[in-house]
Amino acid sequence: MTRTRVRPPSRVAGPEATLLTVERGMQVLRAFRCERSAVSNAELVRRTGLSKATVSRLTSTFIQLGFLRHVAGGREFELGTGPLSIGHSFIEASPLVRMANPFLQALADKLNVSVALAIPNGLEMLYICYRTSDRIATLRLGVGSLLPLGTTSIGRAWLWALAPAEQKRLISELKRAAGGRGAALEQSIRESFAELDANGTCAVLGGYQRDAYGVATPLRVGRDGTLMGLSCGNAEVAPNVAQARKRIGPELKKAAVQLEALFAETDGLP
């Protein structure tokens, strides 16, 4: 009697496989940072948690599509022109960005700081608007910058305004990602929450760059009340954070109220 060998079904097939591939591809692209430093396959594996084979396959595909390119004389990668065109289209098409930029520029000039509006992106905050005073030259940030959610003022202000269940879940993720520093990170986050409870803003020094401080507050934007973070910051030698908080805090809270009114009839998300 001849037996017919039955091939076991694929673990992931059809549309589900396509969605999984797209999701993994987006993880790789998000692993690139705004500082434009070249990234190796090994570093992409570390940042994404994907297998070496998956990362190699995706980077090869993205090179063919123009989303990545090899750094001259090396095997590392940097973003190509593909993501640039998408980002430019996003900025040009966003009424929120067009409305926010003049307002944020005026605030930056008034306080002599950089001003940012950000939304969450995993365990980071993504700058969708960024304006700076002409006298600021030490912060290496801009639209598209990704800052840590757990260690920066803008991330903690956004986290503070979340519903309790979602806040608890994200703090657990942040602690897990921090490893042995998880308990200290949570304590520092709780201290910022206490500051927000008392003043409506929080200030953090060195959350992403040495000698750089940020003062932040949350705001809800548009008809659907999209939660975002608004921050002012600067980098100085031995900055006086208490003085910066006192100087910036009241203006920042006033700006958040004005921005919420400005965006009241928008769709919220950029």
Rank of each mutant, 00 (worst) to 15 (best):
M1P: 05
P8F: 00
P9Q: 00
P9V: 00
R11D: 00
V12H: 04
P15C: 00
E16T: 00
A17L: 06
T18K: 02
R24F: 03
R24M: 03
V28I: 04
L29I: 03
R30P: 02
R30F: 09
A31T: 02
A31P: 11
E35C: 15
R36N: 12
R36S: 10
R36L: 12
S40P: 06
A42R: 06
G49Q: 03
S51T: 09
K52M: 02
R57E: 04
R57F: 02
L58N: 01
T59D: 05
T61M: 10
T61V: 12
I63A: 08
L65S: 07
G66D: 03
F67G: 01
V71S: 15
V71T: 15
A72G: 12
A72N: 13
G74A: 15
E76Q: 12
F77W: 10
G82S: 05
G82A: 11
P83I: 07
S85D: 13
F90L: 14
I91C: 13
A93Q: 08
A93V: 02
A93S: 14
A100F: 04
P102I: 07
P102C: 07
Q105V: 02
L107A: 07
L111R: 04
N112M: 01
V113C: 10
S114H: 11
A116L: 06
A118I: 01
I119S: 04
I119Y: 02
P120Q: 00
P120I: 00
G122C: 00
Y127N: 06
Y127G: 02
I128A: 06
Y130H: 13
I136W: 01
T138E: 04
V143K: 03
L147A: 09
L147Q: 06
L147N: 08
S153C: 14
I154E: 03
I154L: 09
R156D: 11
R156P: 09
L159I: 12
W160N: 09
A161F: 09
L162V: 08
L162I: 12
E166M: 08
K168A: 14
R176M: 10
A177I: 02
A177S: 10
L185K: 04
E186I: 12
Q187A: 15
R190S: 10
R190T: 09
S192R: 12
E195N: 06
D197H: 09
A198T: 01
A198P: 00
N199T: 10
G200T: 05
C202P: 10
V204S: 14
L205M: 15
Y208V: 13
R210P: 02
R210N: 11
Y213N: 08
G214A: 13
G214N: 11
L219V: 09
L219E: 03
R220L: 14
G222V: 08
G222L: 09
R223Q: 09
D224M: 07
D224L: 07
T226E: 09
N234S: 13
V237C: 06
V237P: 05
N240V: 12
R247Q: 13
R247K: 15
R247M: 14
I248G: 11
G249Q: 07
E251Y: 11
K253F: 02
K253Q: 13
A256K: 11
V257F: 12
T266P: 07
D267R: 10
G268C: 02
L269A: 13
